[in-house]
Amino acid sequence: MTTNLKGMLTHIEPPKPNPQAGRRWAFVIEPDRCIDCEACMVACSVENQVPVGHHRNWIAHREKGKFPYLSLHFEPENCHHCSNPPCEMVCPTGATFRREDGLVLINYDDCIGCRYCMMACPYDARYFDEDRGVVDKCTFCVHRLDAGQPPACVETCIGGARHFGDINDPESEVAKLLARHEVYVRYAEAGTGPAIFYIMD
């Protein structure tokens, strides 16, 4: 698909750091540093033991410009951990919940595998784990965060396209990137309040 990004995307007002509000984990991604090596996908699958045939993160391809001035453009993506998550809203058992620090997580004991959340997610970030009979997705590597480490995909990213941190901390790398650059989010019109910000290139 031919895509001209400049002037076509709605840029959003980047969120200002709010140190009083507590942590808000978020990604800031520089698409022009992504080389589509898919190392993040491998790192994620290894770290989270993702079942074969499913992925928790992926790289969307966009073609920019008009022939003959074409360029390929990569947008690494995973669960957007929305501020207003549609998956959490439709979950009939309350298995999907939103943590204080903005992480949208699943309580696997309560998930009955109805897959309504997969219908609701506009990003198709969720997959159905047939072996366990539950739905699963990116957790921002919550087990690593709680141990003080960055998510596996961020640690492994060769081009340095993925940045991760607390956007409410003015000293964090992501807050500084947001303050310096024009950013956009995927499907702003869905009103989901995603926490993956893409830097306009």
Binding site: M1, T3, N4, L9, K66, P122, R186
Partner: peptide, 13 residues
């Protein structure tokens, strides 16, 4: 059919 419908990314020019 509903499951095949999606939000669409940015408009092609």
């Amino acid at each position: 059919a509903g499951q095949l419908s999606h939000f669409l990314p940015v408009l092609p020019r």
